[in-house]
């Protein structure tokens, strides 16, 4: 077949469309060099000082951007969710009233506990040794946070991280000289023992709250909290015979020894029971809100069971 294209033009296109052996080789060598560079960085762990250096020089700007982003996000959320706010406000008022009545009952129980402690000479000791930290950045896509405390503050891998309200956030992952990564409980790598504590419903009825707290037996349902990624948390391995309800409160259990007992994890959102599965599974609404989170605490030292 005859070609009508100008030979010079055809050569030009040929040159453009075909990689020469030399350029292919050059590209391959560069790619292998980069690969080798990263392999060495990973093997020697030299990536840590590099990351720490960049976090150190960027943290003032990043923290400023983080705060601005949080403010802007709250502002836009307020606009977009204005319709739902009325209903949410109403629900919160109702919940607030319910909580106030519980607080008054718990205050009474606390007084009684104090008296009992005095009698038993147990004393009230601090259960945790806390260290305050500030969030530098979030990586929600990977359920992680970066905080401004690191090896220099004697932070170690695995330390629990909580909010000021004793809500469990996660544990320390990678530690750098001045910074640390926090693996949130919603991270897919996260897994720990938890429990649902509730009063026996039958006994609560027809008795006033104060006497109920003294007389009722607290029923505990144990399970394993697993991160699902994308800020989703699940409570798995709950025996089928244990009845759990929506809005049941989940707290950490001392079983695994990873976290101290009694830290708030969240509420039951949705219960999934499958005929094929010997256990129940529940989706949990996390007790923390990353939108409002700014300051957090690292537990440096803790007793598994409070008061021991």
């Amino acid at each position: 077949m005859r070609s009508y294209m100008n030979p010079a033009k055809r050569d030009g296109i040929k040159k453009r469309t075909q990689f020469s052996l030399h350029s292919k080789l050059k590209l391959g060598v560069i790619f292998l060099g980069i690969l080798a560079f990263f392999v060495i960085l990973n093997i020697t762990n030299f990536s840590k000082p590099i990351k720490n250096f960049f976090y150190l020089i960027s943290s003032p700007v990043e923290q400023m951007l983080f705060r601005k982003g949080s403010g802007a996000s709250n502002f836009f959320e307020g606009i977009f969710r204005s319709g739902k706010l009325m209903e949410e406000n109403k629900n919160l008022r109702f919940e607030n009233q319910e909580l106030l009545s519980r607080i008054s009952a718990l205050n009474e129980a606390e007084k009684e506990n104090e008296t009992l402690r005095d009698v038993l000479n147990l004393g009230m000791k601090n259960d945790f040794e806390l260290l305050f930290a500030q969030i530098v950045s979030k990586d929600i896509a990977r359920d992680s946070l970066l905080i401004d405390k690191g090896l220099k503050d004697e932070i170690k891998k695995g330390f629990p991280v909580i909010t000021g309200q004793k809500v469990l956030l996660g544990r320390i992952g990678e530690v750098y000289d001045n910074f640390s990564e926090v693996i949130l409980v919603s991270n897919k790598e996260s897994s720990f023992d938890a429990k649902i504590s509730k009063l026996d419903v039958k006994e609560v009825e027809d008795i006033n709250i104060f006497s109920t707290l003294r007389s009722t037996r607290v029923k505990e349902v144990y399970g394993v909290v697993k991160g699902g990624g994308g800020l989703k948390i699940y409570l798995d391995l709950i025996p089928r015979e244990d009845k759990i309800l929506k809005d049941d409160i989940i707290t950490t259990a001392a079983l695994g020894g990873i976290f101290p007992q009694g830290l708030l994890v969240g509420r039951v959102k949705d219960i999934k029971i499958s005929d094929l599965d010997p256990f129940q599974k529940a989706e949990i609404t996390p007790a923390f809100s990353l939108q409002d989170l700014d300051k957090i605490f690292i537990i440096k030292n803790f007793k598994l069971v409070a008061g021991q």
Binding site: L27, F38, G173
Partner: peptide
């Protein structure tokens, strides 16, 4: 991206290699 992404299970250099592959 490798420096500022907080992921423990990813190889450092993962994003660089992915990005270079994308460019090529």
């Amino acid at each position: 991206l490798d420096i500022f992404s907080l992921s423990n299970n990813l190889f450092f250099g993962f994003y660089t290699l992915i990005s270079l592959f994308l460019v090529i």
